[in-house]
Simulated scan of single mutants.
Amino acid sequence: MINAVMNPDVKTTATERSIHLQEWLKPWLNRSPIPLTPVAGDASFRRYFRVEAADSRKGTSLILMDAPPDKENSERFLQLARAWQPLGIRVPTVHQACTQLGAALLEDFGDQQLMQAVREEDPASASPFYHQALQQLAHLQVQATHCPTAASLPNYDEALLQREMDLFDDWLLGQLLKLPDHDRPDGWTAFRQSLVDSALEQPRVVVHRDYHSRNLMLLPDHQLGILDFQDAVIGPCTYDAVSLIRDCYLMWPEAIQDQWQEQARQLHCRNFETIHATDWQRWFDLMGMQRHLKAAGIFARLWLRDGKAGYLKDIPRTLQHLQHALARHSEFQPISQWLHNQLMPQLEIQLDSLLNTPA
């Protein structure tokens, strides 16, 4: 029975897939079949289920990752988890995996995300968590960059940086707001190119590429468990720090953001090469602009293509991060004015219509 689902040409129903997964799990279970408890997922087609400790032969709870191979490729996640975990990078242990089935049995990092442990109205209490997250990021960058698997990672090159920004043009501007191609601010192409140029001139390290409060889990040993690293690349040294500090799901006061990014710079200087604060600030700001364009486009696509409406409410905050960064750089004033005077009002009207219309 299980061989059928391993054949990509054989389509299976959800019930059949559940049976295959239960069969695959049997060696790890005290009884079979067992109820599988869904746990929080992500923006992909992967699903996660908890095997409770009472049902597990290990005596501890485990996480079943269900990643149908016709929709998700789990090989990079498994490769990196197995390579990074012995280096002290706090990623989940892989107990068992089958890429043909698209399943893996992982260490359980629990349910508490960093996002749930901090409050925007109390940034001082969040600082210890962010200092920890930045310390662990620095460790990841040092260890993973010098790990043999780094040679197999894609480069965060110009083509990829531009494709990511195309998501903003295509999905948010074109599909969500229905803006024609000519309705862009003066200098839009040059602006995008400046973000690419800034990214490419930075020192290169391993980049997690989605290092933020929803992918960091609070663990009993006071470490932060790191998830969702399968899209890692070799790329700009500021990328993961800006992803964490200017998180699409949180908005911290600029003063504390500046404190955290200075910690990130000092950690980089200690572990790699010295970067002047002025250079770091510009790289950090422009890297954030590129990421927030990409993220806003992805959030629009998640609604339009995948029917995931929950991410629509994150678009305004993501573009607020973009606005704040643009305000620091006078050469981008036309972009800033277009965003403030044209795009944001149109977006507000569209989101109000979508979010407040009865289903």
Rank of each mutant, 00 (worst) to 15 (best):
P33T: 02
V39R: 07
M344E: 07
H131K: 12
Y130V: 06
P220M: 08
Q337N: 15
Q266V: 03
D181N: 03
P334V: 09
E273M: 11
P35Y: 09
W260S: 03
H292P: 11
G310Q: 12
L250H: 13
L227C: 11
M65L: 14
S213M: 01
L176E: 04
L304D: 02
Q230I: 14
A300N: 08
R204T: 15
L36Q: 09
L173A: 04
L319P: 05
P154C: 11
L172N: 04
R192A: 01
L304K: 02
Q113E: 12
A124R: 03
L161Y: 07
A232K: 08
I245R: 01
G59E: 13
Q116I: 00
R270Q: 15
Q132Y: 00
E23S: 15
R301D: 00
V91M: 06
L224P: 07
V205A: 01
D170G: 00
H146V: 00
T99L: 14
Q136S: 07
Q135R: 13
F191Y: 06
Q323W: 04
P68W: 13
V142T: 14
E262V: 02
H222A: 13
L160C: 03
H182Q: 13
W338K: 09
D42T: 07
W252I: 10
K313P: 00
R17M: 11
Y239T: 07
D231G: 15
Q135G: 08
D108V: 10
L286K: 13
V51R: 01
R163K: 13
L302A: 02
L293T: 04
L195E: 04
I245H: 05
L176N: 05
L36K: 12
K71G: 08
W28F: 15
T149D: 10
L21Q: 12
I2K: 10
R184C: 04
D42G: 08
D231R: 13
V91P: 06
T99F: 00
V10W: 08
P69S: 11
V5M: 12
D42V: 09
I2W: 09
W252H: 11
A97C: 02
I234Y: 03
Q281P: 00
R246H: 04
Q162G: 01
V205T: 12
W283H: 08
T357W: 00
M251R: 11
D111A: 14
T274A: 12
P316V: 14
D70I: 11
Q193C: 02
L134H: 09
P345D: 04
Q290Y: 07
Q22V: 10
L106V: 06
A67V: 07
E75Y: 05
W28K: 03
A296Y: 06
E52I: 08
P69K: 12
Q193N: 14
E164F: 07
Q141D: 06
W280H: 06
P345S: 01
R90E: 14
G235F: 13
W260K: 04
D306M: 09
P92W: 03
Q135K: 15
F168A: 02
R270I: 06
D247T: 12
L351R: 06
D70T: 15
L78R: 09
Q85Y: 12
W252R: 12
L200I: 05
H321N: 08
E164L: 07
H292T: 08
A159G: 01
P154T: 11
H95M: 01
N7M: 06
F284S: 08
E273H: 10
D352I: 00
Q263Y: 03
L227Q: 11
E158P: 05
H212L: 02
